[in-house]
Design a protein around this nucleic acid. Structure first.
Length: 208
DNA sequence: CGGAAGATCCACT
DNA sequence: GTGGATCTTCCGA
């Protein structure tokens, strides 16, 4: 059973655009308060670093907040947004590059009751309500700034092999909420599991 | 030092 | 579909 083996650092030491689709179907494992919470990733976005105006590392910007982006691939970058929400990224590439993959949506695999409790949602949850959206994902899995900069191979937050998908099962589109980013706003760096009901927003080109 | 905007979510209409 | 909550960060003056 390799399903629960952590993804090695070498997995992340590639361009974010290449890592992102391969993160779909993987499991995010969170050990907190004596509980194990596991979620299967169904939607991610790649952020390319310096050349990407939508990235926090655009133009090589480096501040106290985004410092984790410049760690080597395989670390977590967690930031606070809109005064209320956290977002979780997996850093990609070599140290100093600034690439990352934003984890946008997942479905509960284990510990669903505990996840729902942290989300303030009653079970059974309506599809698309539990972990659909980067802020919801962090709330449900108890991810906050304390996990900024941690390595994702061991410890209380890990990414493991899970169930990798083939290309035919993956859809691709423009990223969400980056309209300010000029040409980069339309780069097709958003990836999701085809047909998943837990994707954070509908795909413009798909009806229903 | 002030202001604006943000990789969002939720309630309400 | 719209707007409010809420606060950190960044940039310009």
């Amino acid at each position: 059973m390799s399903r629960w083996r952590a993804l090695p650092k070498s997995f992340y030491r590639r361009p974010a655009e290449e890592v992102a689709p391969e993160l779909l179907g993987r499991y995010l494992v969170r050990d907190v308060g004596g509980e194990r919470l596991v979620a299967r990733l169904v939607e991610v976005e790649a952020y390319l670093g310096a050349p990407d105006r939508a990235s926090h590392a655009w133009g090589g910007r480096r501040t106290a907040r985004n410092e984790a982006l410049y760690l080597s691939g395989g670390h977590a970058y967690v930031y606070f947004i809109y005064g209320m929400h956290f977002c979780l990224n997996a850093v990609t590439g070599a140290a100093g590059e600034g690439g990352a993959v934003l984890l946008r949506a997942a479905e509960a695999v284990e510990g669903e009751a505990a996840i729902a409790r942290r989300r303030g949602v009653e079970l059974p949850a309506r599809p698309g309500l539990l972990l659909s959206g980067p802020g919801r994902l962090c709330q449900g899995l108890a991810v906050d700034r304390r996990l900024d900069r941690v390595a994702l191979q061991r410890g209380e937050l890990r990414l493991v092999e899970g169930e990798p998908l083939g290309e035919a099962e993956i859809v691709r589109g423009a990223r969400v909420g980056v309209g300010y980013a000029g040409a980069a706003a339309s780069w097709p760096l958003r990836f999701a599991v085809r047909g998943s009901r837990e994707v954070s927003r509908p795909w413009p080109w798909r009806r229903g």
